[in-house]
């Protein structure tokens, strides 16, 4: 009897020393990630608790922003397709082709400039009485492009398409 009393008192003391949350914490540690458990709170109300183990990783910037796009040993090839149409008042199909090709070439140059240098975008919306009255988007680019090559030209149904390529190497920008 004495022995059992001693054992009980020892158990109660150890329980008090660990505190009320100790048992709870011990249980949390055992629960595998993403699992719903029913836990009896000291106030005897049953609640559903969701546990999820979250591995914290140090915040780092994306790798793409750190790595240089142009590497010394690897030139970058940029390919675009520009489109142009002939004006309505052409005197011959040959003239229409020449003018459409000129427009398509300029469009291809613009696409290269946009890819290499980027585009400025400016937007404006006018809302009156909860309705969009005017929506404006302005884009612009300004650049200088040289040594671009025309790879292929096609002319079909009044639309001229010019495929253009440019090779960017590290040495072009290093000096």
């Amino acid at each position: 009897m004495k022995f059992s009393l001693l054992l009980l008192s020892l158990l109660s003391m150890s329980a008090c020393a660990m505190g009320p949350n100790a048992a709870h914490k011990k249980e949390v540690a055992k629960i595998p990630p993403v699992k719903t458990e029913t836990v009896d709170t000291p106030n005897e109300t049953t609640v559903n608790v969701i546990y999820q183990e979250i591995k914290k990783e140090p915040l780092t910037k994306p790798a793409a922003s750190k790595a240089p796009i142009l590497k010394a040993d690897k030139p970058v090839l940029i390919s675009v397709v520009g489109q142009g149409v002939a004006p309505m008042n052409t005197t011959s199909p040959a003239q229409a082709y020449a003018l459409a090709k000129r427009a398509a070439t300029a469009d291809a140059y613009r696409l290269i400039a946009e890819k290499v240098k980027g585009v400025n975008v400016d937007g404006q919306d006018l809302v009156k009485n909860m309705m969009v009255k005017r929506s404006t988007v302005r884009t612009s680019v300004q650049a200088m492009v040289k040594n671009a090559n025309i790879v292929e030209t096609t002319f079909k149904d009044g639309l001229c398409e010019v495929e253009m390529e440019i090779t960017l190497s590290h040495s072009q920008f290093s000096h």
């Binding site: 300029a106 140059y109 613009r110 400039a113 946009e114 302005r138 884009t139 612009s140 680019v141 300004q142 650049a143 200088m144 492009v145 040289k146 040594n147």
Partner: peptide, 8 residues
């Protein structure tokens, strides 16, 4: 080499 100005 040509200077390019584009606005849309």
């Amino acid at each position: 080499g040509l200077n390019i100005q584009h606005s849309q």
